[in-house]
Design a protein around this nucleic acid. Structure first.
Length: 155
DNA sequence: GCCAACGTTGGC
DNA sequence: GCCAACGTTGGC
């Protein structure tokens, strides 16, 4: 199957691309996804080798700040069973996990973050899911052309 | 801090 | 199964 591309949101106050860069090998388990549509993408569509646009949300200038690569298949997110985790889900059953995550590895930190404002203003990106009004998907698909445009602007 | 948008929950 | 209430996301 051809390599596919995704945009994953994170609040940098919780986990930023710099936090990712500080991990050994730039690797981290992308956890805490608690939305069924995003979960389904992670579990059923995202594959090792796929490209990830890392997006910082909840800040004055939300932006794509770099890229990563998916390095493992979706596996159950352990935080759902962890009572002390902010992502704990009392309804999750260890016999039938509800939430999944994937391991990713940092590829590039953009020299120039590609801001939401730029995304909106750039021809060819009009159809991006992340630009849709009221969009709340924390994992969303990215077309190859969109990936190319954004990487060319940021790297 | 505000609030629109949207997903989820729960009463019926 | 409907839908109002509620909680959360996320841009502004």
């Amino acid at each position: 199957m051809a390599r596919r591309y995704w945009l994953m949101k994170t609040e940098p106050g919780t986990f930023s691309i710099d936090d990712l860069a500080r991990r050994p090998g730039g690797r981290a388990f992308w956890d805490g996804v608690r939305n069924y549509q995003a979960r389904n993408l992670l579990r059923d569509e995202v594959r090792p080798g796929d490209g990830v646009l890392v997006y910082h949300s909840g800040i004055p200038d939300p932006a794509v700040v770099g890229t990563a690569v998916v390095v493992g298949p979706a596996t159950p997110d352990p935080t759902q069973f962890d009572r002390r985790s902010p992502y704990h889900d009392p309804g999750a059953d260890p016999g039938a996990p509800r939430w999944y995550g994937v391991e990713i590895a940092l590829e590039t930190v953009f020299a120039r973050p590609v801001t939401l404002e730029t995304l909106r203003a750039t021809p060819g990106l009009e159809g991006m899911v992340v630009l849709r009004r009221g969009n709340r998907l924390s994992v969303s698909p990215v077309r190859p052309e969109e990936w190319s445009i954004i990487v060319a602007r940021g790297a």
